[in-house]
Write a protein that binds this DNA or RNA. Sequence first.
DNA 1: AGGCAGGTTCTTA
DNA 2: TAAGAACCTGCC
Length: 289
Amino acid sequence: MRIAIEDDFDLAKIAESGQCFRWTRCADGSWLIPYRRSRLRIARVGCNEGDACDGDAGEQAGGVFEVDCAGVEFSEVWRGYFDLDEDYRAVRSRIDPADDPFLFEAAEAQRGIRILRQDLWEVIVSFIISQNRNIPAIKRSVELLCEAAGERVADHGPDGGFYAFPSPEAVCALDGESLARCRLGYREGYVRAAAESVASGAVDLEALRSASDDEAFETLLGMRGIGIKVASCIALFGLHRVNAFPIDTWIKKVLAREYPDGFPFERYEPYNGICQQYLFAHYRTTMSD
DNA sequence: AGGCAGGTTCTTA
DNA sequence: TAAGAACCTGCC
């Protein structure tokens, strides 16, 4: 079926923003997006009525998309996953080009990014794995972990299906050798500890979801292998605390270069995390180009 | 061939 | 409280 999306929505930009590690792009340009026990195929097939259909500028601003699921599934699962009930244009409109030209430029260039509402457990593990590694290595390990312990789900996609992200219990059940094959390196112990904490109930994901920002942060920091940066990423991408502002090596450089007097967090409350995504993506693309 | 990677932990002053 | 080394592994 086809759906029209009016707000910012650019699949390639979201995929490159570094918040998710399992999206794949097919040869025909469509995207395959796994979430829990579902997988969506989605492709942009046109512009919204009345919009200028001119390349990248058009793609950032949503459009018409072909999805391989029913309307009910889209509205019950994927609408939430893509955070389509949040108005990103409104968030961007708070950025004043006179006050903050750098962020304004970043947000214009990176328009189309959204903060996905991913599975919390998957986000926890993925970002524990992410530390001190580059993106290809992170993706590789996440995929190996899914193959090692995830449930096989059949669908109409290529290969006839995919591996769901494994539950904490499934990770616990993995023997040492199988987990070692996921090439997690020294993070292996962290992942196992996290799985045991959640499986045993020592860490309650539902409680985490309803906790205050401070409480959630404290719980996350108590887990082995989770420091301030990873906890911020989990808060932003796993708990949808869109004011969380992860500071990694890239953001550190942007802040040092563009905000020597400090980033004006109070100006963008409670959407600092969205601003962080614009800054991060923009800085990375401009540096690698 | 090696440095370095979207950090965290552990050790030392 | 604050630096600095060590950590697995595999990209580039």
